[in-house]
Design a protein around this nucleic acid. Structure first.
Length: 569
RNA sequence: UGGGGGAUCGUCCAAUGGUAGGACUCCAGACUCUGACUCUGGCUAUCUAGGUUCGAAUCCUAGUCCCCCAGCCA
């Protein structure tokens, strides 16, 4: 297959969005021979679901059109960047299922060439060293409605600028003493064109270049030229960079760069009940509001991974929400849907009682143990089955019993017959209470003829509930997660966001009882606790202690109904 | 008030002058040894006002509302 064929197939299969339209048109018109994209994170934090949108787009474009995609770290500000973040980002991109072209790239790989281009601009009288303080520069930049004023250092000679810039590079000046600026137009309506800073002095150790450099290129000066070096054809970023595009193009037009990339902008992802700014996420971690960057409540890729969200669910979600230029806020429920859909297909089923209450089958012989057959996956025969032990004393879910059942409650209640999944029909005969009047035990009888879960007389029950054998079940801690913010549209305000954190975002259940096969649960392998949701083993599990995370609950129309009735009064 | 963008079901995305469509949500029902899954059906939208046209979400004019920009952050 030729690359042309691949490109055509890619174009045909691709979900159509304005970026893919542009790429397809450029390929068709021969403006680009192949598509080359890049995912360019700054290693100053962990990747989150918003980055996943950019990752899926950039790597997806390369896959669909038979091109390639680079992973490039935009490491131009050593004051904020760390090796830990570089490592985490590589891990997360890989986990999401993407492979970058060749070696990992770094803007810092290009520091020498970038420096050379800065010299080129000075020689063309298109850049100058400005001795104004940051404060002075700000004052002279003007405002949104008033033009700025030229710096009094703007007309220095080429020789003087060259000497000064070299001195900056050699560490002759303290941070803030001066900066290299492009000479464009202090009166431009676009503030990015009012002599933007190209290089500044930074006194910090860089994770890769150490202290070799005293000066660092700004984002604007580094990004487009890095794209040009790598032969990027379509440089995709978010909307807030739209008015940087004229500057991006200005550098490409005025510098002897090896290729001419173009920048395109799309809306970033916003999710209800979620804050995705790096500042907020860093604040959540550093402020101790969560357990770390991979806390299962975090919207980070690492957080979703630990929570049990499979990478295909994230990819599916991103595909569903599309790409456009309109600011929007996607309902968290859409992510939930993708997660459930992915998990339903693959997760094996198990029985686990989260909040146990004891059940004694009075007419079942003491000491008797029966092995019953239970399937691993209802829609996948190849998944096989396992044996579960039935005994006289069991645990069922406390929520599956109501002493005084409301009209829509189908589960266990005094005098009512229900099915224990894969086992027998049982009827609740009596309720045992403690001194405080709380129900502590249910006394039931079973119908021996209903073994396996069906009664030969064709009798029906309205509910099937899960259970475990008291003696054979194993204890575990189960962690339930709720949104970090109850407000669907939380404020990212530094003061406000911490106070909006949902105090019930983490709920720990310490006396869950699991069917014994769950002792073999593996990290990273999802499992469905029947009628409850999808769960996964947490890395906090140890030799003597099992810890499970609830990735997401099953849809629960009964609970929703009850809540609705309550709201209606 | 300068510059740059954007407005379509509750939400997200399509429709590129020719039947406003899909997904999520929601509602009603079927099925069910998971109140899950699956299946069936349904509700709901073109920011406003003019204009061009046989025909406008799309083109034109004038408005309205929303977002971004005044770091030596990215």
């Amino acid at each position: 297959m030729t690359s042309d064929d691949k490109a055509q197939i890619g174009a045909a299969e691709a979900a159509r969005d304005f970026i893919r339209e542009i790429v397809a048109a450029d390929l068709a018109a021969g403006r680009a021979k192949e598509v080359v994209t890049r995912f360019p994170p700054e290693p100053n934090g962990y990747l989150h679901i918003g980055h996943a949108k950019s990752i899926c787009l950039n790597f997806g474009l390369a896959q669909e059109f038979g091109g390639r995609c680079n992973l490039r770290f935009d490491d131009t500000n050593p004051a904020k960047e760390e090796q830990e973040f570089i490592d985490a980002i590589e891990r997360d991109v890989t986990w999401l299922g993407f492979k970058w072209s060749g070696e990992v790239k770094y803007a810092s790989d290009y520091f020498d060439r970038l420096y050379g281009w800065a010299v080129e601009l000075i020689k063309k009288e298109l850049a100058y060293v400005d001795d104004q303080s940051a404060e002075e520069m700000r004052l002279n930049r003007g405002t949104l409605t008033e033009p700025g004023k030229n710096s009094r250092f703007r007309d220095r000679s080429v020789e003087e600028n060259l000497a000064l810039f070299a001195a900056m590079k050699d560490g002759k000046f303290a941070a803030g003493k001066c900066a290299l600026r492009a000479k464009i137009d202090m009166a431009s309506g676009n503030i990015n064109l009012r002599d933007p800073v190209l290089y500044r002095i930074v006194e910090a150790s860089h994770p890769r270049t150490g202290t070799a450099w005293k000066i660092y290129p700004s984002y604007d000066f580094a990004h487009g030229q890095s794209d040009a070096i790598e032969g990027i054809t379509h440089s995709i970023c978010t909307l807030e960079f739209e008015d940087h595009r004229p500057l991006y193009d200005w550098f490409i037009a005025n510098l002897s760069v090896p290729s001419k990339p173009h920048q395109y902008e799309m809306a970033r992802l916003n999710l209800t009940h979620t804050l995705l700014s790096k500042r907020v996420l860093t604040g959540l971690v550093r402020g101790g509001h969560v357990g770390g960057w991979d806390d299962p409540r975090m919207p980070t890729i690492a957080g979703y991974r630990r929570r049990g969200v499979p990478p295909e669910a994230i990819r599916d979600f991103i595909k569903r929400i599309g790409v456009a230029k309109a600011n929007s806020q996607v309902d968290l429920g859409a992510l939930d849907f993708s997660v459930r859909e992915a998990l339903n297909k693959t997760a094996w089923r198990r029985m686990a009682v989260l909040k146990p209450i004891k059940v004694v089958i009075e007419n079942y012989p003491e000491g008797q143990i029966e092995e019953l057959e239970a399937v691993n996956h209802p829609d996948d025969e190849a998944a096989g089955s396992r044996k579960i032990k039935f005994t006289r004393e069991l645990y069922i879910e406390r929520d599956d019993f109501m002493e005084v059942p409301e009209k829509k409650f189908f589960r266990m209640a005094p005098g009512r017959e229900v099915r224990l999944r894969y086992a027998y029909f049982v009827t609740c005969k009596d309720v045992v209470k403690n001194a405080a009047g709380e129900v502590t035990e249910l006394r039931c009888t079973y119908d021996p003829a209903s073994k396996g879960g069906n009664s030969p007389d064709g009798r029906k029950v309205k509910a099937t509930i899960h259970w475990v054998s008291a003696a054979h079940s194993i204890p575990a801690e189960v962690r339930l997660y709720n949104p970090l913010f109850n407000d669907p549209n939380p404020s990212a305000d530094p003061e406000a966001f911490a106070s909006q954190i949902n105090p019930q975002s983490l709920e720990v259940l310490t006396d869950a009882r699991l069917e014994p096969s769950l002792a073999e649960a593996k990290l990273g392998v999802p499992v469905q606790f029947e009628r409850q949701g999808y769960f996964c083993l947490d890395r906090d599990s140890g030799y003597a202690k099992l810890v499970f995370n609830r990735t997401i609950g099953l849809r629960d129309t009964y609970a929703k109904d009850v809540a609705k009735d309550k709201a209606a009064g």
